[in-house]
Simulated scan of single mutants.
Amino acid sequence: MTAPPLLRVEIDGRPADAESLLYPATTAYGHFTAMQVRGGATRGLALHLERLRAATWELWERELDGERVRGLVRHALGDTDADASVRVYVHCPEDEPTVMVTVRGPQDMAARPQALQSVAYRRPAAHLKHLGGFGQNYYGQRARAAGFDDVLLVEDDGRVLEGGITNVGFLDSAGVVWPDGPSLAGITMQLVEARLAEAGIASRRGRVMLDGLGAYRAAFVTNSQGLAPVRRIDDTVLPVDEKLMARLGEVYAGVPWDRL
């Protein structure tokens, strides 16, 4: 999916210019979060803020105030409640973290079933949503050139980890299985996972192997743009479980929106 053009970029509440963009443009050390904003609200705001706080401390041992971040996002969105895709980037060029907010038009994941190409690659510091995703972009580009929608990252031994820019879940006879290897705990995945039991769907973390995918009844991916079924991984065709996807869609639709 091609991202909509940038509408606004602010750094610490001020419009970005050549000088303020110099550091972000020349470093790959930092982290970010991505959210969809609808009518001035987003899902999982507390999770986004905690992600940014924890990563800032881990990378630089500096505190990042969530209310400050919230205010900077509101400022970048402007006075309107227009729908948007927002990213919050954190860098630390000197002693204190700087916050860059980018605003684009809204994006939603295409509901059509996805085809994924497996690649032996584990993101460094996989628990962080960090900058410098060359590996994901490189393999993702090659996968799309080969007719796939994205990649599925696996260990050298075939242990499934995550999608290139998604989390992935699998359905077996007991319920939903989330791969338990090193990966990013995506916000959408966390929001859905926390509500599955209440929706009557069992959920667990477990080892998922590439050579055993044919045993699963279905698969799906999640990211900040939503959810989509998976129809194929490499040469393994997976049934699209319309009932499961409808139920997952209901679960996600029931997540409350948090005012920014």
Rank of each mutant, 00 (worst) to 15 (best):
G132D: 11
G133F: 09
F134E: 03
F134S: 14
F134M: 13
F134C: 05
G135E: 08
G135F: 15
Q136R: 10
Q136L: 12
N137Y: 07
Y138L: 14
Y139A: 02
Y139M: 06
Y139F: 11
Y139Q: 04
Y139I: 01
G140M: 06
Q141N: 09
Q141I: 01
Q141F: 12
R142T: 01
R142E: 07
R142Q: 10
R144G: 06
R144M: 06
A145N: 05
G147R: 11
G147W: 04
F148S: 02
D149H: 15
D150Q: 07
D150V: 05
L152W: 13
V154C: 15
V154F: 04
E155G: 01
E155L: 10
E155Y: 05
D156G: 13
D157V: 07
R159T: 13
R159D: 00
V160E: 10
L161R: 09
E162P: 08
G163C: 11
G164N: 02
I165C: 11
T166N: 07
T166E: 11
T166M: 11
N167I: 14
N167D: 04
V168A: 12
L171T: 02
L171V: 03
L171F: 04
D172H: 10
D172E: 05
S173Y: 03
S173P: 00
A174F: 01
A174R: 13
A174E: 08
V176Q: 14
V177E: 11
W178P: 00
D180W: 04
G181N: 11
G181E: 14
G181A: 09
P182R: 03
P182D: 06
S183C: 12
S183L: 10
L184Y: 10
A185T: 14
A185M: 04
G186Y: 06
I187Y: 03
I187L: 15
T188S: 03
M189C: 07
L191V: 01
E193V: 13
A194F: 01
L196Q: 05
L196D: 00
E198L: 12
E198I: 03
G200S: 05
G200L: 02
G200D: 03
I201S: 00
I201Y: 00
I201Q: 03
A202Q: 04
A202K: 02
S203R: 09
R205Y: 10
R205K: 15
R205S: 03
G206C: 05
R207V: 09
L210E: 07
D211C: 09
L213K: 10
L213T: 10
G214C: 02
G214H: 10
G214N: 04
A215W: 06
A215N: 02
A215G: 15
Y216Q: 12
R217C: 01
R217N: 01
A218C: 03
A219N: 08
A219G: 08
A219Q: 09
F220M: 04
F220H: 06
F220P: 00
T222R: 07
T222M: 10
N223H: 09
N223F: 13
G226A: 15
L227H: 15
L227F: 14
A228F: 13
R231S: 15
R231Q: 15
R231T: 04
R232M: 13
R232G: 04
R232D: 00
